[in-house]
């Protein structure tokens, strides 16, 4: 009984001391009135604590919950200012996106320049040029370089044959376009794959509807590309549509 009484008294004294210190700390009179109200409520709560314990045991938990709710509403009402980490992350993402765009642009430019160069220098009937870019870490930056080059030649002979037959031209041409597009799309996926699969993708680029061009032309084209753009000769494929498929 005495222990409980002394506990209670000690609590009250401590809270009152706290209240006096708070009143000393407060900056001006008008604030003091309000702070005094809250501190007075605390003292009241402390004095009432035996009765509170008698009636309901979870006063402090209820208080905790109330305060928590208040501080949470404070937190959420604060408009979100982006933290430094978020800003840096955003910057990284943006620069990544930018370098990807730059690489795409480079790819397109390369394809166009290789094509025009080939047509001009070898007089080959080049249909399209696919450049596959690879990425390498150079001084902490992802830097693109030319991974492989695929030169698609036009099926030169078929033009003459088909024009003689007349009617079949209409049937055949759409098929050519369809086959080519599908193959190119597939190849792009292949070219993005890692370097270890490079040889297999080289095989795959030649199978199906494509066949290698004749040796002399291939050699001329690939030597031109090797000289002009510094691509490894193994990564250059010259191909043209298969005759069987187109004349079907």
């Amino acid at each position: 009984m005495v222990a409980w009484l002394s506990d209670w008294l000690r609590d009250i004294i401590a809270v009152i001391l706290l209240a006096v210190l708070v009143e000393l700390l407060l900056p001006n009179k008008s604030m003091q009135r309000y702070a005094r109200l809250v501190v007075g409520l605390f003292i009241l709560l402390t004095i009432l604590s035996p009765i509170l314990k008698l009636l309901q045991s979870d006063v402090s938990s209820k208080l905790d919950a109330g305060m928590q709710q208040w501080s949470e509403s404070q937190m959420t009402s604060k408009t979100g200012m982006a933290s430094l980490a978020e800003i840096q992350q955003n910057a990284e993402q943006m620069s990544e996106k930018r370098s990807l765009e730059a690489a795409k642009l480079m790819q397109r430019t390369l394809e166009a320049s290789i094509r025009s160069e080939l047509i001009e220098r070898t007089k080959a009937t080049v249909d399209s040029v696919d450049v596959g870019l690879k990425w390498v870490m150079l001084s902490g930056k992802q830097t693109p370089y030319i991974g492989n080059v695929t030169v698609n030649l036009k099926a030169a002979e078929q033009k003459g044959e088909l024009s003689k037959e007349g009617k079949t031209v209409d049937d055949v041409l759409p098929v050519i376009v369809e086959v080519e597009m599908g193959q190119i799309g597939g190849n792009e996926g292949m070219q993005q794959s890692s370097g270890s699969e490079m040889d297999s993708s080289r095989e795959e680029r030649l199978d199906g509807n494509w066949t290698g061009a004749d040796g002399a032309l291939t050699a001329a084209i690939s030597s031109l590309i090797v000289q002009g753009w510094g691509v490894d000769a193994n990564q250059i494929v010259v191909r043209q549509p298969l005759e069987q498929k187109t004349s079907r």
Binding site: R10, D11, A14, L18, M31, V38, S60, L63, D64, M67
Partner: peptide, 23 residues
């Protein structure tokens, strides 16, 4: 003072918040 006298910590937290807001 609060820790030694065993006042619930929520009291002290609230009082400190009041002082901060006032200042």
């Amino acid at each position: 003072l609060a820790v030694r006298s065993g006042i619930p910590s929520i009291y002290l937290k609230t009082i400190l918040k009041i002082i901060g807001i006032a200042y």
